[in-house]
């Protein structure tokens, strides 16, 4: 570390100023304000000024069965998408990292294109493709192979998995590219060192590649878990949480409470619970990565 004097240190804060000024005004203050509001009854339709209600909003959530269903669905969504995305993304990256493969750029581009499309647009396309009725493109194709049409977004067991399929499809390329970057960063010499030993490619992966990819894996895991807990748009567009509450997630619940029922206090309470969960999870994951002696910081 370069030795610095105090005057220079003041300069550092000026580097931080623009970014953190914006954080302060547009994120941190709103967060504090939201926390404050979570202790109020604040229906922007029926009352003009918020009324202090203490913990009543939080108690309401404990009592509301739908909130618990949405928590369960969100957890299901996270567990069902993040590992799958990561596994498939890694697999795709391994395949595309082969030295002897041609048209790499072409395949990489094909895999990545879904990432660049807006979620709103692609959810609408998905909704039409997985339409359970006689016009559903996927069902028509399945029937050509003699497979019975499925209920997709209209089946309470399949609605959420259909959305999960979309998310996996869309994010696969993103995770692949990050893994690919991680793989390319591993120096060839490491593999060359064992080239003469009789090791299987599986062993090579397990003992060399996988440990070296750990920082990549942790980075993806942390950011993907945070993202997935906040899933909203595809569900909003495709199922509106139904059938029943079978695809309602936490942020969908929050949206319903806050922007459809205008219960801002309750919505803020939901947001806070979600925030705390994400904070704890991230700290845990961070600790885990530190314990394995790979620094995340």
């Amino acid at each position: 570390m370069i030795v610095t004097n105090r005057k220079e240190k003041v300069g550092y804060y000026l580097f931080l100023l623009p970014a953190y000024l914006i954080f302060a005004v547009f994120i941190f203050w709103p967060v504090v304000h939201s926390l404050y509001l979570s202790f109020f009854k604040y229906n922007i339709v029926t009352i003009t000024s918020p009324q202090f209600v203490g913990l009543r909003n939080y108690l309401y959530l404990l009592k509301d069965e739908v909130f618990w269903i949405s928590c369960k669905n969100t957890l299901f969504f996270v567990i069902g998408t993040v590992p799958v995305k990561m596994f498939l993304g890694l697999l795709a990256a391994m395949l595309l990292n082969r030295k002897d493969l041609k048209f790499k750029a072409f395949y990489r581009t094909c895999f990545y294109i879904p990432v660049v499309v807006s979620m709103v647009a692609i959810s609408i396309v998905w909704m039409l493709l997985f339409n359970p009725g006689p016009n559903g493109v996927v069902n028509i194709l399945l029937s050509k192979f003699g497979i019975q049409p499925l209920g997709w977004i209209a089946d309470s067991k399949l609605a959420l998995p259909t959305v999960m399929l979309l998310v996996i499809w869309k994010d696969l390329g993103y995770i692949m590219v990050i893994y690919l970057a991680g793989l390319m960063a591993i120096p060839d010499e490491i593999y060359e060192a064992v080239a003469l030993d009789p090791v299987s490619s599986w062993q090579k992966f397990w003992y060399i590649t996988w440990p070296l990819l750990k920082p990549t894996t942790i980075f993806i895991l942390i950011t993907q878990v945070i993202d997935s807990f906040q899933v909203f748009t595809p569900i909003y567009v495709m199922t509106e949480g139904g059938p029943g509450y079978s695809s309602t997630t936490i942020v969908n619940y929050l949206y319903d409470k806050g922007f459809r029922e205008y219960e801002m206090g309750i919505a803020c309470a939901v947001a806070y619970l979600l925030f705390v969960v994400l904070l704890v999870l991230t700290i845990l994951q961070n600790k885990l990565s530190k314990a394995e002696e790979v620094s995340y910081d």
Binding site: F26, I27, P30, V31, S34, L37, I226, Q230, F232, V251, L254, Y255, G258, M264, A267, C268, A271, Y272, L274, F275, L278, L279, T282
Partner: peptide, 9 residues
């Protein structure tokens, strides 16, 4: 980690 909907209003 902050859901956008927390800060939106």
């Amino acid at each position: 980690m902050i859901p956008f909907y927390v800060t939106a209003i």
